[in-house]
Amino acid sequence: MTNSEILVTTTEKIPGHNYEIIGEVFGLTTQSKNMFSDMGAGLKSIVGGEIKAYTKMSHEARDKAIERLREAAVEQNADAVVMMRFDSSSMSNDMQSVVAYGTAVRFID
Rank of each mutant, 00 (worst) to 15 (best):
K44F: 01
S90H: 08
T55P: 05
N77A: 10
G40R: 13
R62S: 11
E20L: 07
Y54K: 07
Y101C: 08
Q31A: 05
E20M: 07
I14A: 00
I6Q: 06
M91N: 09
E5L: 07
G42Q: 10
V105I: 13
R70A: 08
A65Q: 03
V99C: 02
E12T: 14
F36D: 10
Y19A: 10
A41N: 11
P15I: 07
D109R: 01
Q31F: 02
G49Y: 11
M39I: 14
R106E: 03
K33A: 14
N34E: 15
S97K: 14
I14Q: 13
M95T: 15
I51V: 09
K44I: 07
K52T: 12
S4T: 05
N18K: 13
M83D: 09
I14N: 02
E75Q: 14
M84H: 01
K13R: 11
G23Y: 11
G42Y: 08
A80C: 01
R85G: 00
M57T: 03
E60S: 09
L43R: 03
E20I: 11
D87P: 03
I46H: 03
T11M: 01
K13M: 12
E50T: 11
F86Q: 02
I21P: 01
K44D: 12
N3M: 03
Q31D: 12
M95A: 12
D94C: 13
R68M: 07
S97Y: 04
N77V: 04
K52H: 14
D94H: 15
V105P: 07
Q96M: 14
G49T: 12
G49L: 14
N3R: 09
M35R: 08
E12I: 12
R70T: 08
G23F: 09
N93A: 09
I6F: 01
N18S: 14
T11F: 05
Y19P: 02
K13T: 15
S58I: 00
G23E: 15
S92D: 15
K64T: 04
R85H: 04
D87E: 14
V81P: 02
T10G: 08
D63G: 00
V105A: 05
K56C: 08
I21W: 10
R68W: 06
Q76K: 15
E20A: 13
M83T: 05
M1L: 06
S90L: 06
